[in-house]
Nucleic acid binder design. Structure first.
Lengths: 138, 138
DNA sequence: TTATAAATGCACTTCCGTTGCATTGTATTT
DNA sequence: AAATACAATGCAACGGAAGTGCATTTATAA
């Protein structure tokens, strides 16, 4: 079991208090969060710091960005089964129109999709919108 | 063959010069356009008018909105084979990372995707990013 | 301990989407 | 045709989110 410190070091990122806190925050959340969410959780910290921290995490493949169609970028930790950098391993996301939550369906892989001749597929973004299990009551 | 005037009237939208121009602009373009694109094409017109015109078109299912992950909303005409309002008929979009163009692949339908128990799928957004036929040179 | 570089905080900017309100234009009724 | 009603347009402004420049603080290395 890797500690967060070890993880950051393995990615060549300096271990700072802020980064540990943000990492822990993301790890606790089971859903994708916006920058505002992080802002609200750390009111003492500056927006820019949070912004740049998340950007650093993204570059180092610690978090991945999610575009769920709400117009606001969300972020979620890359963990067990999430190898965002590998195209064939992309998972999909679910956005609840009711509670506005976005979650990673890491176990659901995106099916191979044929593109027309001449087109080269590099990345796929698949977001399903609807009602989540908590809201549907099923 | 319906004229644009007839189309607008059939959707209960008043026929105005602006709307005819914007419709023609969208029809000429083979790709999805941003509001800025339209703005640049009609510099005499006000941003708000263009914005509201497109929104009207969207409500009346004349255009559909595309979220290609660039963070900027794009719009494209709904035509032959595009029945956006019907979930099972959703087509996918391709975004070229090179020339930044987004096109509708109307002939490519989104495969049925199973969601976990308790989740209800209402809408699906699928964007493939890569290199388009014009840029790939294939 | 000092030098070096990265991380943080503050201020500010830009871009896009959106709304309120006054004005112009279009359609309808008498 | 004139008056009325309502929709479309234009202008101004707001708000949120993303992003940048620079000074300051903090951490790492020499």
């Amino acid at each position: 079991m890797k500690t967060i410190e070890q993880l950051l070091e393995s990615k060549n990122i300096r271990v700072t208090a802020m980064r540990l806190l943000i990492y822990k925050f993301l790890a606790e959340k089971q859903v994708a969060v916006t920058l505002s969410d992080i802002e609200n959780a750390f009111e003492k910290a500056d927006r820019t710091t949070l912004y740049r921290t998340v950007k650093t995490f993204e570059e180092k493949a610690i978090v991945h960005q999610i575009d769920d169609g709400t117009g606001i970028t969300k972020y979620a930790l890359c963990e067990k089964g999430c190898n965002c950098e590998i195209e064939t391993d992309l998972h999909l996301h679910f956005h609840c129109n009711n509670c506005n939550v976005t979650i990673c369906l890491t176990e659901h892989k995106i099916p191979q999709i044929k593109v027309p001749d001449g087109f080269i597929s590099e990345d796929i973004n698949l977001v399903i919108k609807g009602v989540c299990d908590k809201c549907s009551g099923l």
